[in-house]
C-alpha cells in the first residue's frame, strides 16, 4: 500500500520548534510517566549489590557505599519511551559503564553483548557498543536527588539513545554474553535493539 493519506480533519496542533529532537511517532511530555510490568520492589541500599558477570564468575561486586565511591558523572539527555512519550533535558548522575570496566581493571569489554538483570526478574539485552564511550551509566540520582523507587531506585541502567525499556530499573547485575539474547520485553514482541530514531518498537520494525 502507498503512504496512508492524512485522515480527514486531522491537523498538527503541536509546535514544531523542538521537533528535530523528537523521534518519529513520539510526543513531548513534561511529567515523568511510570511504566513497569509489576510491583515496585522494596530495595534497601543496605542489601543492595551491583555485580559485573562474565561466564560463571563475577568480575566485580560493589556494595552501595563502594558504588557511591566510584567516579560520578552527570549527564543531561532526552529520553524516549516506546509508549510514545519523550522527555527533554533530563538530568542524571551515576557511574558510567566505562568507569565500571576501569574499576575491574578492564581496558576492553570482554564480550560484545550484555544482559542486565534486575530485582523483580526483569531483564534487557544491550550491545556493549551502546554502553561504552560515555553512552550509558548506572544512574542513582535524577535531578540531583536519589532516584525514587518507582523510577528504578536505588539504581537503574541508563541507555538514553535507545527506547527507555532498555534503561532497566532496579538493575543488580550486568552479564556479558558472547552472542545476543533477548530480554523480558524483547522476547514478548518488542524489538531486540530499540532505536527510537528508526522507530524500532516491535519485532520486525
Amino acid at each position: 500500500m502507498d503512504e496512508p493519506s492524512a485522515p480527514r480533519g486531522f491537523r498538527s496542533r503541536r509546535q514544531t520548534s523542538e521537533n528535530n529532537r523528537l523521534p518519529p511517532g513520539q510526543y513531548l511530555t513534561t511529567d515523568f510517566p511510570i511504566l513497569s510490568a509489576g510491583p515496585t520492589p522494596d530495595v534497601r541500599v543496605a542489601d543492595w549489590k551491583l555485580g559485573l558477570q562474565l561466564g560463571g564468575s563475577l568480575l566485580g561486586v560493589w556494595t552501595w557505599d563502594e558504588f557511591e565511591a566510584l567516579p560520578q558523572t552527570t549527564i543531561k539527555t532526552d529520553i524516549h519511551c516506546v509508549t510514545k512519550w519523550t522527555k527533554l533535558d533530563t538530568s542524571w548522575q551515576g557511574v558510567t559503564f566505562d568507569d565500571l570496566l576501569k574499576a575491574v581493571g578492564l581496558e576492553e569489554p570482554p564480550e560484545a553483548y550484555v544482559m542486565a538483570h534486575c530485582d523483580g526478574g526483569y531483564t534487557t539485552n544491550v550491545p556493549v557498543a551502546d554502553l561504552i564511550g560515555g553512552k550509558a551509566m548506572i544512574a542513582s540520582r535524577y535531578d540531583g536527588l536519589p532516584l525514587a523507587p518507582a523510577h528504578g531506585g536505588p539504581a537503574r541502567l541508563l541507555v538514553p539513545h535507545l527506547y527507555f525499556w532498555k534503561s532497566a530499573k532496579w538493575v543488580r547485575r550486568l552479564r556479558f554474553m558472547a552472542e545476543d539474547d533477548r530480554g523480558f520485553w524483547e522476547s514478548r514482541g518488542y524489538h531486540s535493539y530499540g532505536d527510537p530514531w528508526k522507530e524500532q518498537r516491535y519485532d520486525g520494525d
Partner: peptide, 14 residues
C-alpha cells in the same frame, strides 16, 4: 510479585 501484572493506563499526555 511475579504473579502481579501491572499496566499503567490512561492519560499520559495525549
Amino acid at each position: 510479585p511475579l504473579t502481579i501484572k501491572t499496566e499503567r493506563f490512561g492519560p499520559s499526555g495525549g
